[in-house]
Design a binder for these strands. Structure first.
Lengths: 159, 159
DNA sequence: CTATACTCGGACATGATGAATCCGAGTATC
DNA sequence: GATACTCGGATTCATCATGTCCGAGTATAG
């Protein structure tokens, strides 16, 4: 799985705290990661409609929907692509003993089992929202953690 | 996910049909894939103890355990490695607002959610065995399909 | 209204990992 | 005891993730 997923998730969680747009460079400095590369992940989130960008002097990124309506699955699909991890190449239809196409009305059993497992994975991701993550962060690091991040994001970097 | 997982699973299913060792080259010809590369996947399965190799003139690969006691998770772990797909790099402990190490007694909420999803995925894979796949193949392609493959594997390639 | 400074957006190098291949070590057969 | 066939690891190539850069566009300030 792409490592950018972690960055994107953290960005979504901190964007929960601030209602004003936050520049990508500020998010990168907060997480101590490459700003140029984080921009790519944020662009992917913007293409998926999860966040929207505002240009100009006081522009940046902000969440499009409410945090309760953004699931982890949405973020993973936006960054890593919606395609399944396991792709069936239909090797049962190849080779000297290839199954005739008429016998392949259903997906092959291997593809079915792998797809079922990925379905469970996606269901688990879809059941958790960005709001849930923000709540857990508050429970772990204290209720003042996210407001503090928000103040730093909108304030000066020297503070 | 590595594409070799599909090859390895198909090989495990067809090895169910033959109790005698099958050379890697024969398996590659059956599936019309690169024999040199399939060897790498079979070696990974052998290292994991799922199949065992016998050398010599009439050697090859054969299942070590009963098909009922080999789960899809075993095969995926053997080929793609047991490590989780999502790795937390602890970026919460980096940057100007890094969380102090004393506040990081538990894994960060994002890592927990991703780990939980992967746990569901692994559980789904662990619930399906190679024997289940063989049964599904018989249900799809008819009960004579796997014995036919077995006959081809042990017989001559010209037939 | 104009100039500016700051923002995003996509196009461009680089490195690591998967994919594919080859030749050498070892053993049951004849 | 020679042989022919097998596996096993070391090597090379392609692909995608990673990381970086400069140009297009807009709200602001004068």
């Amino acid at each position: 799985m792409s490592g950018g997923v972690e960055w994107a998730l953290h960005c979504c969680v901190v964007l929960t705290a601030s209602s004003r747009p936050v520049p990508a460079a500020r998010l990168a400095e907060l997480h101590d990661v490459s700003g140029s590369y984080l921009a790519k992940q944020l662009q992917a989130l913007a293409r998926a409609g999860l966040i929207h960008s505002v240009q100009g002097k006081s522009g940046g990124y902000a969440l499009t929907r409410a945090p309760e309506s953004i699931s982890l699955l949405d973020v993973v699909h936006a960054v890593d692509g919606p395609g399944p991890a396991f792709v069936c190449t239909e090797i049962r239809q190849r080779g000297p003993l290839a199954s005739p196409p008429e016998a392949c009305t259903r997906a092959c059993p291997i593809a079915r089992a792998m797809s079922s497992a990925e379905k469970a994975w996606r269901a688990a991701l879809a059941a958790v929202t960005i709001a849930d993550l923000a709540r857990d962060v508050a429970a772990d690091s204290g209720p003042e953690a996210l407001p503090g991040v928000s103040a730093w994001l909108t304030g000066d970097s020297a503070g």
